[in-house]
Design a binder for these strands. Structure first.
Length: 607
RNA sequence: CGGGGCGUGGCUCAGCCUGGUAGAGCGCCGCGUUUGGGACGCGGAGGUCGGCGGUUCGAAUCCGCCCGCCCCGACCA
């Protein structure tokens, strides 16, 4: 079962800041301290339970920052959750940090539940660890490097494989100590080329990174599966729409990876989706859409003056672009000039191409093509150059560049070896189902690392036969800030953010309509006091502001339930209640006499 | 790093072309009237106009260099 929620570190539900007299600073709320709370599966963490808005630093804005484009960026700044410090650098304001901490806590509880142990490793890291694994040189400008006052090379960790493996190398000696899983929440520093979209891509962010250490690949498979299942529970608890998909292993190295993607308009990854299938387009493979056969009357060499693009040639010859072969010349270190042929209507996927080639490549220059006797714009298969055909190229007749200017030629392509390097397109099929392509933000990933780090860092253990074996590792990351931003993307509307209840900064916002000293305000004060003893965390808007402003701020901040108490309530004995998701009024309201219990029940039914 | 855009009070912006006492709305402070969807009146506070240099009698405005921020691309977990 889940951990019991423990509350009670804080002093009370209220805080009266400086400036109040002695009498005023006697707290005005009830004693929320040490109130036992029922464990609820999608509740997270222990935070100061309730709060008066008049004492909260919540810098809401009527207008979004002029440079914001992504919905989450606009809304999170407007709602007073985050403020920018520099490019890709953000401060979490108090309300926003509550959300972040709730996400962290869901993650923490699920990591603990699979037996992972929390520790904390430093950001500042001696460079020799990164030199040992080769990443000091291989990673590039994203890794922040500098020297300390003694002149020692240092890095700011962008990930902690090196550090955690360093410890395991020292501390784990025996197979009896394995398997082992360690994790922490720590700042990562990545000097991104281009931070963007508020929190979606930043240069500094908190990451939960977990690492598994096993005796052998079968053990890794088991650990990986534990993490995979925990990830599903975490993102479900956070209320996100998400899917797991096949991923490229990228800079982490290793031999297996899945990404957890949250679909949203501002997402910077494209994901190919079909029933039972989800894959980053960087790895996605699908059946291409068929093209009609090439016109029979075309044959041999064709005069195509000035037609240097697929589109121009197809239009001039009145054929489908898929009847052409497109040539994509690249240069690799190991193989020199290489020609990649694709169907004319397809686009090369550079990540897939890199994976297929197994080495870095760059586009060939005009000079290099000229040196090989080729004319840009009229490229085609050439016996002189190593050539690969994309998997979508079926045997048949195609129009392709002839190798000399202003001429194309019809060629017969036969069956043969293929590599899959094209970008899949909406409408291609997987197992007969057409795929859709959707933008998404990566909120987590899991990698099978194998011995990529344990070998260079000497992380070995003695097996039952007394023989040294490298520890087999996995690595598992989640960016809580991206989880928060993804929720804002998915549940934001023109009024603000309708948080899933499990990560909302407060469970309920109580809006007092009526200024201080009125009977309705006194009633609201009393209700707040009562609610602070319930299982719910309440934000009490006790400001002397216009009702419209309070409602607008409540909708911006997005507590899943809003209670309103005003004169009407005193007359009717009913509070008004509105569910934030869909801005839907609770029919009949909530009886003041049993407000706490009813509100808890209502909250329990929210998404 | 390539292309584009922008930097004027806490926020959104005008003023710049055509040089001449720094403006508006919102927000903030005070007083009053208001009070169920971002009210109104009166009075206030707040800005080295991103920085440095140049031109000029005079620069937010013109010129040069630099810095910062955003978007697209490249790149990237």
């Amino acid at each position: 079962m889940r951990l019991q929620r423990v509350v009670g570190v804080g002093k009370s539900g209220d805080f009266v800041g400086h400036g109040g007299g002695l009498l005023e600073s006697v707290f005005t709320g009830s004693i929320a301290t040490y109130t036992p709370r029922a464990a609820t599966s999608d509740r997270a963490g222990s935070l100061r339970p309730s709060m008066r808005l008049s004492h909260l630093l919540l810098p809401t804005e009527r207008e979004p920052p002029s440079d914001a484009e992504a919905l989450s960026h606009k809304l999170m700044v407007r709602a007073g959750l985050i403020r920018q410090v520099g490019s890709g650098l953000w401060t979490w304001m108090p309300a926003g940090w509550r959300i972040h901490r709730k996400v962290e806590q869901h993650i923490r509880e699920e990591m603990d539940a699979i037996g992972a142990q929390e520790l904390l490793m430093p950001v500042l890291t001696p460079a020799h660890l990164w030199k040992a694994t080769g990443r000091y040189d291989s990673v590039g400008g994203e890794l922040m490097r500098f020297q300390d006052r003694k002149g020692a090379d240092m890095v700011l960790a962008m990930s902690h494989e090196e550090t955690v493996t360093f410890h395991v190398a020292q501390l784990v000696r025996s197979y009896r100590q394995l398997p082992l899983q360690l994790y922490h929440f720590q700042i990562k520093e990545r000097d991104e080329f281009r931070p963007r979209a508020g929190l979606l891509r930043t240069r500094e962010f908190v990451m939960k990174d977990a690492y598994s250490f096993d005796r052998d690949p079968a053990g890794l498979d088991a650990s990986y599966e534990l993490q995979r299942a925990a990830y599903h529970r975490i993102f479900e608890r956070c209320g996100l729409r998400f899917y797991e998909c096949e991923a490229d292993v990228g800079m982490m190295g290793g031999f297996g990876a899945h990404e957890f993607m949250a679909p949203c308009a501002a997402g910077e990854n494209d994901v190919a989706l079909a029933p039972g299938y989800a894959a980053n387009v960087e790895v996605a493979a699908a059946e291409p859409q068929p093209v009609p056969p090439l016109r029979h009357d075309l044959a041999g060499e064709l005069h195509t003056p000035g037609r240097t693009t697929v589109e121009a040639v197809a239009r001039a010859l009145e054929v489908h672009p898929g009847n052409l072969l497109k040539a994509f010349p690249v240069v690799t270190e190991g193989r020199g000039l290489v020609m990649i042929l694709l169907r004319g209507d397809h686009r090369v996927n550079e990540v897939k191409l890199g994976t297929s080639l197994g080495e870095p490549f760059r586009p060939a220059t005009a000079e290099e093509l000229g040196g090989a006797g080729m004319v840009p714009g009229f490229l085609g298969p050439s016996a002189a150059v190593l050539t690969f055909h994309d998997a979508a190229i079926r045997p048949g007749r195609y129009v392709t560049g002839s190798g000399r200017a202003d001429h194309h030629v019809v060629v017969e392509v036969e069956a043969g070896e293929r590599i899959d390097v094209r970008t899949v397109e909406a409408g291609d099929t997987v197992a007969g189902h057409p795929i859709a392509i959707e933008p998404a933000i990566e909120i987590g990933n899991i990698f099978k690392l194998g011995t990529r780090y344990s070998e260079p860092l000497g992380a070995t253990y003695l097996d039952a036969h007394g023989k040294a074996q490298p520890v087999v590792m996995g690595s598992y990351g989640i960016g809580p800030a991206r989880v928060v931003a993804a929720a804002a993307e998915q549940y934001g509307d023109e009024h603000g953010i309708a948080w899933p209840r499990s990560i909302a900064p407060w469970d309920v916002e109580l809006v007092a309509v009526g200024k201080a000293g009125t009977p309705e305000r006194d009633a609201a004060d009393a209700l707040y006091a009562e609610l602070t003893t319930s299982a719910l965390d309440v934000l009490y808007d006790d400001r002397d502001a216009k009702p419209g402003e309070k409602f607008a701020d409540a909708e911006l901040l997005g507590a899943p339930l809003r209670l309103t108490l005003g004169k009407r309530s005193l007359r009717s004995g009913q509070l008004e209640a509105q569910r934030r998701r869909g801005r839907e009024d609770v029919e009949g309201g909530v009886a003041m006499a049993s407000a706490a219990a009813t509100t808890e029940a209502l909250w329990g039914e929210l998404p």
